[in-house]
């Protein structure tokens, strides 16, 4: 079973409408590639994500928003992305966090 099966994933951007949706699509691509079935995958604005983050296992955000997630707590992994549509970056980030097997 993949480590991310059943995990809750969140993608955040400033408005929760554009970049975060693109991120969600890119994350989906990675999940499909590795046959992972996350428990939840959604996107929202940083304002909402800031408080919601601690209820998620992994939070993805554009690098510029990383400061908003400084106090998410030990159970949440935050993965900042330079390019929000890069499935390669998402893969690399997950691998680095030890959440994705080669």
């Amino acid at each position: 079973m993949a480590k991310l099966d059943g995990k809750k994933l969140l993608a955040c951007c400033a408005n929760g409408a554009g970049s975060s949706l693109m991120m969600e699509n890119a994350i989906k691509k990675v999940m499909t590639k590795y046959s992972i079935k996350p428990g939840e995958l959604r996107h929202c604005a940083v304002s909402e994500g800031k408080s919601a983050a601690r209820n998620y296992d992994v939070v993805f955000c554009a690098k510029t928003f990383i400061k908003n997630f400084e106090d998410v707590g030990p159970n949440t992994t935050v993965i900042p992305l330079k390019n929000v549509m890069s499935d390669k970056e998402i893969e690399a980030g997950l691998k680095e966090a030890g959440l994705l097997d080669e």
């Binding site: 408005n15 554009g18 890069s86």
Partner: peptide
């Protein structure tokens, strides 16, 4: 400018 992506593509947008 996080709405400016690779390949010099800009996706200016706001919220829903």
């Amino acid at each position: 400018p996080y709405m400016v992506f690779e390949h010099n593509i800009a996706m200016p947008h706001t919220t829903e």
